[in-house]
Amino acid sequence: MRALALGVIGLCSVLGLVGCSTSGTDAPEGSGALAEPGGPAAGTRDTDSEPTTLTVLAPASLTEAFTELATQYESLYPQVRIDLSFGSSTTLAQQVAEGVQADLFASAGTDALALLPERYARGGGETTIASNELEIAVELGNPRGITGLEDFTRTDLDTVLCVQTAPCGTAADEAFRAAGLTPTPVSREIDVKATLAKVSLGEADAALVYRSDVVTSTAVDGVTIPTEHNVSLTYPLVWFNAEPHTIGFVDLITGPDGRAALEAAGFAAP
């Protein structure tokens, strides 16, 4: 635990991450609290032993990573409880705008940030924690020998894409435009999970989804898309105050353990 905490501090000082540097006087103390996990050792402030609840809103794609990180943080600080709420980024941002109390908000893509009220910037901060990109999901072992985006123009294959109104559908159209291709899908599914399911159920030969969806599914294999035709999506993390544990959890997410959890879920570094 100590190694972890030192690692976090090290990362903060080396990279000068927003979470460690922008939040005024509280930030170093928050990080300091991390170095003395839970114990009554010197330097621990009164507030650290008081029961605290952190409310964290995050997109569904971060479910596994954030659940693991919250458990880690709660075991470091038993007096802290982290309430996680997962959903569509747009819905969560609308909830914040309508007055739902939250300490942290992570979003898939930057579009939802525009929905946050102006006041979020006061006393908090923002950073990018991960990025995601499109990848082709194929049946295990790639039996149809799919190699790239051009296979989506073949009529002898059953390929599926997200509907144009879903973020993954917009990204797919962008990728095909960049590659100068006109895809011939048999269906445009209503969201990314429905699109992936058509391949994992064996009903379609290929689907264009996000890399994290491919990595976390045991029922499909992935075929990567060359960077020049790919479309990436960044995951911003916003925090609304500079309370020690808010900053502490931000530090954990942006630190090596956070990176490892996000990488395991298929996300690339920002």
Binding site: V160, S187, R188, E189, K198
Partner: peptide, 8 residues
């Protein structure tokens, strides 16, 4: 329909 027949 959306589950079985898809959406095109």
């Amino acid at each position: 329909t959306i589950t079985f027949a898809g959406n095109l």
